[in-house]
Design a protein around this nucleic acid. Structure first.
Lengths: 347, 347
DNA sequence: ATGGAGTGCTTTATCGATTCAGCAACCGTC
DNA sequence: GACGGTTGCTGAATCGATAAAGCACTCCAT
């Protein structure tokens, strides 16, 4: 690559003002050891030349990059192409802006050389800390990263990593809540659950919430759970298999909205009406659930807020203000729409 | 902030092997001036210590950051929360990964001090080049950035910036294509167009395409165009106003899918059936159009590919392989669904 | 045996910003 | 008028990696 077009350095300013780099630096930093007259002169010249401190030189000297990384494991590829990620990015970006830091978005694409992207980005000094989202349970990299003592905050729940910092949502309670809704408000009794992948805590917790609700109603005996992968296709496939099995059901609790949408399409194709023949509920409310017909009753996951608070926490760690491990779970909200029978859409 | 936990440096390796930093550096670089034996020793120690080159030191010395920035103007705030951005990020990220570069995502949030975020990020050496997306026509920062000679590639069409590099889609032809579809295939004659904001080239071009199609059919005289802002709400508002005006129409060409969705909801609320009473077409196909009922006939904009090619071009510029200005327009594709009358959805 | 070409490293300088120890000049004070 | 204290800067070192020049030493050809 060709070298970057040369910028204005402190040296340029110093020469113009007739002082040294060091003095110019102190002047711009507002040191009390520099005369007001010189400070003003330096500021004037800096403005005139359009001086912007070279962040690389500064980072080297200060031993911190002024940037944080947002890492998305490639294992959960569907996540990167998902609306969820936008919310996360917005939250991370908002917090980072408030802390004058850059955001580096990184996928865990290259695994060569035994050093994971997680480690590489931190050890290389490119970023001062990391936000990790949608990590699988068996992702050894996350464990390694947390164990290494580098500043990391995870988005999600990681009960098997007690020393990690994380901000999640109360998936279990939320899933119980939405299942209860079908049981209590709509009197459904034969529910199926299409779970997320069970190597993600989200998949486990949402299934757990479903099972807990059934148990509360004495329906725990023969709970019906099918594992999906959060994709629209897997939701559709689960419903196809359920219909073909002949086992009756009057409601389906999907672990996310994408699968719920896929399932609803199959139901419609088979001539079944949602919610009359089968009520449907989803999870996430990242956008899709609002736009389908009928709208999908779901749990609103505050992804942006989770990301923002995770990032705020990361900056607190970087500032030395956050000591021990910390896990927060943000409250979620039930959003009722047409798919459960609550609101009848327009004719 | 507390200093970053100290990493392994070349000095550590050099000491262990019994050579100097410089030799260690050359060894890892594979220089022919270092004996095979020493090279192997250095590689072994580097692996053992988990050495990762400090990207800041390297960037300072090499005078390039090894990172590019993706800038989204805050003026078009709705864009950041839009699915479009995901596609762009995916494309940029893919190309950057292939070039071993980091991606810095930046909003143009802070405008303080007269130096725009655009300039700051480049002048500070944080990024070697910039991808700018969704810039408004009157965004002086983009002009300044392009004029400064810094490596920039724009996503979109910027006919008023002839010296800029850009990759866009042929919005005019595409809009003509989808309008033609309503005119020719579905025999509609009274079309309304809800445009995007006319301070974006996209808004102008899509309107232009609509008008051209009407003119081709001798309907150019009293073309009906309303300006929206690409939001669902503005699409809804445009349809409300149209219905209330009493002026009859049998089809609406929206400049994007969000507005089409908003419009369709209003039509349904007013008891009108899409496409029977009014055909609807959108633009973008970033996800929404596929999930509504009926599905929205639209133009598929290859956002990810645009972003990928824009980023590839940026790297070509950085490598000095791309000289003159360049503007490419990628082909778009008509995707027919239920909202125009082409496919009847399931009962 | 002597100059030229390798070979394999070391030394030194550099990138830009920042920090810390100095060091003049000047001030007031007893 | 010598002395402590301030004011306002300079000089040098540092962060980590790397490029270029330099310097021993070996080897081969003439």
């Amino acid at each position: 690559m060709a070298p970057r077009s040369h910028g204005v350095t402190l040296e340029d300013i110093a020469q113009r003002v007739g002082i040294t780099r060091a003095a110019a630096s102190m002047a711009l930093a507002g040191s009390s050891r520099i005369s007001e007259k010189t400070k003003q002169a330096v500021r004037d010249v800096a403005a005139e030349l359009g001086y912007v401190p070279n962040s690389v030189g500064r980072a080297l000297r200060r031993q911190r990059a002024g940037a944080i990384a947002l890492i998305v494991p490639n294992t959960s590829h569907h996540v990167f192409g998902h609306t969820y990620f936008m919310h996360v990015l917005t939250g991370v970006s908002t917090s980072a802006n408030a802390h004058d830091a850059q955001v580096i978005v990184s996928t865990n694409a290259d695994e060569a050389g035994g050093v994971s992207a997680y480690e590489r980005i931190i050890r290389s000094g490119t970023a001062d800390g990391v936000i990790v989202t949608s990590a699988a349970i068996d992702d050894a990299n996350v464990e390694m990263l947390v164990a290494s003592g580098l500043p990391v905050v995870l988005i999600g729940s990681f009960p098997y990593l007690p020393s990690a910092m994380s901000i999640g949502a109360d998936d279990v309670a939320a899933s119980t809540l939405v299942t209860e809704h079908l049981l209590t408000v709509h009197g459904r009794r034969r529910l199926m659950h299409v779970s997320g992948p069970l190597d993600h805590q989200t998949g486990i917790d949402r299934r757990q919430g479903f099972l807990a609700a059934l148990a509360d109603h004495g329906l725990g005996e023969d709970a019906w759970v099918v594992e999906g992968d959060m994709s629209e296709e897997s939701g559709a496939a689960a419903v196809v298999a359920a219909l073909d099995s002949g086992r009756p059901f009057d409601g389906v609790v999907f672990a996310n909205d994408d699968m719920a949408f896929g399932g609803m399409q199959v139901l419609r194709t088979r001539g079944l009406v949602v919610p009359t023949d089968a009520a449907v509920v989803g999870f996430d409310d990242f956008g899709l659930a609002r736009t389908t017909t009928p709208g999908i009753t779901t749990i609103r996951v505050p992804a942006e807020r989770m990301a923002r608070e995770a990032t705020d926490t990361l900056f607190a760690v970087l500032a030395g203000q956050q000591a021990g491990p910390l896990h927060r779970e943000l409250p979620v909200e039930l959003v009722t729409r047409g798919s459960c029978g609550c609101h009848v859409d327009m004719p």
